[in-house]
Computed example of a mutant assay.
Amino acid sequence: MPKAAIIGCGDVSVVHFEALAGMDDAELVAVCDADPARRVAAQEAHGVPGFEDYREMLDVAAPDVVHITTPHHEHAAIAIECLRRGVHVVLEKPLAHTLAEGERLLAAAADSTAKIALCFQNRYNAPVQEMRRLLDSGELGQVLGASATVMWHRDADYYLSRPWRGSWAEGGGGLMMNQAIHTVDLLQWLVGDVVALAGSASTHALAETIEVEDTAEFAALHSSGARSVFYATLANTVNAPVTLDISTERATLNLRGDLTVTYDDGRSEAVRERVTGSGGRSYWGVSHALLIADFYAGLAQPGPFWIDAAEGAKSLRIVKELYRQSYPGSEEKVS
């Protein structure tokens, strides 16, 4: 049975703890966090040793799989060390906080015998899986275009409680790196790799609190020849459902949590999202456990996990290109 450890016991770690607790083929053996309060709370809640330093944890606990749920600027270094030791990695998005660190992680993954999974768990959502199936089947014809929105709310307290979220140096960006990157990933996965992009990012509501963006938009050209438009903001008054609409030659796909497929002949079909109980926030979706279980199930199989470092690099490059256009020198701010 694989031995698992979690590095980073903050907010999103709860869904990783839940996923491991629901699995019969994995054993949690250690937790790690530099913050004493979070570390002690996690080790007491789960009855495993806690460590301040992840290298000591790797030496002493010797996990087979490490879940990395730390602030963005720590992702690459920890993942690279794990992969160097042959330890499998489940990494929260983004791949890294800079393109350079992302490239380092890509090289480490290519050189390692261990596997890595990026937590783009929304690819496992039932409506999204059906969208991909329909598009791959060819029955809808060519994709003509797509649009997506992320209209959420974050206030100053959200950033003041975790200052790294609002900084270039540790967050690597704002809205696009921390929230909207999931929808960017779905857009490029469903419509095709992005080959050209024009857009802008700015700070409309939280400029007194953060140095990164809270609003962004772009138009993208995909390898399929289709064009997509994207808008995201944290200045909305509520966390509205993410939208993703795809127009094809024979139907329109409308994602609002659930999926509605409207065919040109008047037929309509709906695919409902699963409902699960979780201590995680509703906007994290329902599919972390599915991704994690799938990763563990494939550990003994040859080849990389299907959402690996190379897949994670695609959304990172899109976001960083948007930053390049909007904030000249932003990578220097990060590094």
Rank of each mutant, 00 (worst) to 15 (best):
D136R: 13
M131D: 00
L134E: 01
M176C: 13
G172W: 01
L99E: 14
I78H: 11
A77I: 13
I181Q: 00
L144P: 00
E81W: 09
Q179R: 00
Q179K: 00
N178A: 05
L175C: 09
L83E: 03
G171M: 07
L105G: 14
A109L: 11
T113D: 08
R123T: 10
M177I: 15
A146E: 00
A76P: 14
R85Q: 09
G172C: 06
M177C: 13
N178Q: 11
S161Q: 15
L160E: 15
K93E: 03
L160G: 12
A96N: 05
C82S: 14
N122C: 05
L95F: 10
W168S: 07
D157P: 04
A79C: 12
L106P: 08
K115A: 07
Q142H: 05
L140K: 07
R154P: 02
E101P: 06
R85C: 09
W168H: 10
C82Q: 06
R133L: 04
D136Q: 15
R132I: 02
A107F: 03
A76D: 13
A180F: 01
G102Q: 08
I78E: 04
G102S: 11
S137Y: 05
L91I: 12
A77V: 15
H73E: 01
T70C: 15
A110F: 02
S167H: 02
R123A: 11
P71W: 13
F120L: 06
E92F: 09
Q129H: 02
V89N: 13
H88K: 10
Q121R: 01
V150S: 00
V143P: 00
T113L: 05
C119Q: 08
L106H: 10
G174Y: 00
G174D: 02
P163Q: 11
E101D: 15
H73G: 09
P127V: 05
R132W: 06
A180Y: 01
I80K: 12
R165I: 12
W152F: 14
A156P: 09
H97M: 04
W168T: 09
L106D: 08
L135N: 05
L175Q: 08
I78G: 10
C119M: 13
G173E: 03
T98Q: 02
H88C: 11
R104G: 14
G172N: 01
L99A: 15
Y159I: 07
T70Q: 13
A114V: 07
A117H: 02
A108R: 04
D155T: 08
M177E: 10
P127M: 07
L140N: 06
L95K: 12
A180I: 05
I116F: 08
A148K: 00
G138T: 11
E139A: 13
W152D: 04
A100L: 07
E103C: 02
I181V: 12
Y159V: 06
Q142D: 04
K93L: 02
W168V: 08
T70F: 14
G138I: 08
S167P: 03
A110L: 02
L83C: 11
G86H: 06
R165M: 14
S112Q: 09
L106I: 15
W152G: 06
T70P: 15
M176N: 09
R165K: 14
T113W: 01
L99Y: 04
R154Y: 10
E101N: 14
E170T: 05
G138E: 10
A108F: 09
N122E: 08
G166A: 10
